[in-house]
Design a protein around this nucleic acid. Structure first.
Length: 613
DNA sequence: CCTGGGC
């Protein structure tokens, strides 16, 4: 039998909200509601209800599990005006949805995310500086975009064209976003149209905003937008998953800026950190949950989170989330945890690379989706200079030292430019870091054997320039937005070319230039061919010896077998339907300034989008 | 072989 202590904690959002941050939640007899009295009354528990029972909107076909009492009630009538007014500009910061529990008074106490200068992941701070000093938007002008699927909504050219509402527009201005990036121009209208989306675009090109704005805007407009909980179980409306803790933190910090003063509450949950604080944060209410898979499963098994109300699901770095290591966990979360089915919820997958097998897997989670490919801004254009050097295993350390020495001498005032060094193993990371420190190069390291505290400290120390060299495993390969990384060194090359693409994408961000150096030797033969091809596509100088290895090497190092061109992937439905590895980029439109929309849906009837459905 | 992720 469960203790009354456990049951009695927190049945009221209002009560939770007044708890002192630092004091433990204390059981209060008066808040205890016996389970048999709870049903049908979540609205009572979660705040004032003024409307009558509005039609429940998430009538999802969620596998017979839907308890009627869990459907959000009320607000149907009053909302339409309240919500829309808020979205359409209810006067300054005032007009939020005050029909969500704890609504506007919570907003008053909301920490201004734009005022925090020393936050670890305060990436937009830097981004905005760059924008002010003239972000290299030209770099974005000339890239090809392809979209396929049924009824693709047209792209927009300005944020003003998108009806996100005055509050979100203010946050866009606070972020100093002048105009949408290509992935935003195309993805946001698709997402706002309620379509499922698989989007392929380089990180650093604004993907986070591309899925956050539609989710926040959607939640603001929902008719049933009453934040609910039953007992200690909370029901987020949006779920954003990412493969690493740091990336989840980063997304959370961005999402908090985008949702400032909207009344939409964003909470993050990830492993390696004490769970109690995260639990308390969840109890105070959550609309959008950003999480890593492991911790989320934990929360689901403890019944502290239910996915039954999820309307929006976004997977960042989706190809990673669906590869061998993660896929079972993701499948469990998406398919076996009471989440509304595809087609009922809206699903958005984002990544810089989309191998075809992954697309095939992903189609299990999507319903009649639109595939969007935005040409790479970074790795395969001139923004990143890629170099490959032949370095024997035994020479790697001294060679790295030479590079670092030269870099220091050429740098400003003898300062070391931020250099990110990728190695293959955790042990290798530790030992290289130690060696660098011993040789006068202040370094730190980030990998999965370090505690979360150490990982965060390392990242902060690197960003601040205190230790301008960061030795990392692939934990840092994806998504992390570290401004001003001048040089990425592939001390050990990865086995997969897509990992290489993600790694070098840590430099040359937001339209800036960067340098990527790789140490190649006989243990990297399988990468010779895809690497040579990638560099050639990017108009990089390919050393003769690499071409030689490439010509002898078998195919390898590539799960994707990319069909050439400037994208990180292409719509597998199209390729499969034609039955060939179709290179449709090498034709007319990859080189010119074509920015329009190409609907290459090419004769799919509804419901026959692919052979895997 | 390696990496990521819950106590």
């Amino acid at each position: 039998m469960r203790t009354s202590w456990a049951d009695s904690v927190s049945n009221s959002a209002a009560e939770i909200a007044i708890w002192d941050k630092n004091s433990l939640p204390r059981p209060t007899r008066s808040t205890y509601v016996p389970p048999h009295l709870r049903s049908g009354s979540i609205s009572d528990l979660s705040g004032p209800v003024t409307g009558t029972n509005g039609g429940s909107r998430w009538t999802g076909s969620d596998g017979g599990g839907t308890k009627p009492e869990l459907r959000r009630q009320g607000q149907a009538n009053s909302y339409a005006t309240a919500g829309r007014d808020a979205a359409a500009g209810g006067g300054g910061g005032g007009g939020g949805r005050n029909n969500r529990s704890g609504g506007w008074d919570r907003r008053e106490r909301e920490v201004n995310p734009f005022g925090n200068d020393d936050k670890i992941y305060d990436i937009k701070q830097n981004f905005s500086e760059q924008e002010n000093s003239g972000i290299n938007f030209d770099a974005y002008e000339d890239i090809p975009v392809e979209a396929s699927g049924e009824n693709v909504p047209p792209p927009v050219n300005t944020f003003a064209e998108i009806d996100l509402g005055e509050i979100l527009n203010q946050n866009i201005r606070r972020c100093k976003y002048v105009k949408p990036t290509p992935v935003q121009r195309h993805a946001i209208p698709i997402a706002l149209a309620g379509k499922d989306l698989m989007a392929c675009a380089q990180t650093g090109s604004g993907k986070t905003a591309a899925f956050c704005f539609p989710i926040i805007s959607g939640i603001m407009r929902e008719l049933y937008a009453q934040r609910s909980h039953v007992g200690r179980t909370v029901y987020p409306l949006g779920l954003i998953l990412s493969p690493t803790r740091e990336l989840s933190c980063q997304i959370h910090d961005e999402a908090k800026k985008f949702s400032y003063q909207t009344g939409v509450k964003v909470v993050v949950a990830y492993g390696g950190a004490p769970i109690n604080q995260q639990l308390r944060e969840l109890e105070r209410g959550v609309d959008i949950l950003v999480a890593t898979p492991g911790r989320l499963v934990d929360l689901l098994e403890r019944a502290r989170v239910s996915l039954q109300a999820v309307r929006y699901l976004a997977l960042d770095e989706a190809d990673r989330m669906l590869d061998m290591g993660f896929e079972p966990q993701i499948r469990k979360i998406v398919e076996q945890m009471n989440m509304p089915n595809r087609g009922v919820r809206q699903t958005m997958l984002f990544s810089a690379t989309f191998p075809r097998e992954i697309q095939r897997l992903a189609s299990d989670f999507l319903s009649n989706h639109i595939f969007l490919a935005v040409g790479r801004v970074g790795p395969s254009t001139d923004l990143i200079v890629q170099r490959v050097e032949f370095v024997l295993e035994s020479d790697k350390r001294s060679h790295l030292m030479d590079l670092l020495h030269a870099q220091r001498e050429n740098g400003n005032h003898g300062k070391q430019a931020l250099t990110l060094v990728f190695v293959e193993t955790k042990k290798g990371a530790d030992s290289l870091e130690h060696w660098l420190c011993m040789n006068g190069f202040p370094s730190t390291t980030i990998h999965g054997d370090r505690t979360q505290q150490e990982r965060e400290l390392a990242l902060r120390s690197f960003k601040s320039g205190k230790t301008p060299i960061l030795v990392a495993t692939d934990v840092a390969a994806r998504g992390l937005d570290i401004p001003h990384v001048a040089h990425v060194v592939n001390f050990d090359l990865p086995n997969d070319i897509d990992d290489y693409v993600h790694r070098i994408g840590r430099t040359g961000r937001a339209g800036k230039t960067g340098l990527a150096t790789a140490f190649f030797n006989e243990s990297n033969l399988s990468l010779a061919r895809p690497l040579a091809e990638l560099m050639q596509e990017a108009s990089q100088e390919v050393p003769a010896w690499l071409t030689h290895y490439a010509s002898r090497a078998p195919y390898g190092g590539n799960k994707n077998r990319r069909s050439g061109g400037r994208f990180g992937g292409s719509d597998f439905r199209r390729e499969e339907s034609i039955g060939k590895n179709l290179d449709y980029y090498s034709g007319g439109n990859s080189g010119n300034a074509y920015e329009g929309l190409v609907d290459i849906a090419g004769g799919y009837a509804p419901g026959v989008t692919s052979a895997w459905d």
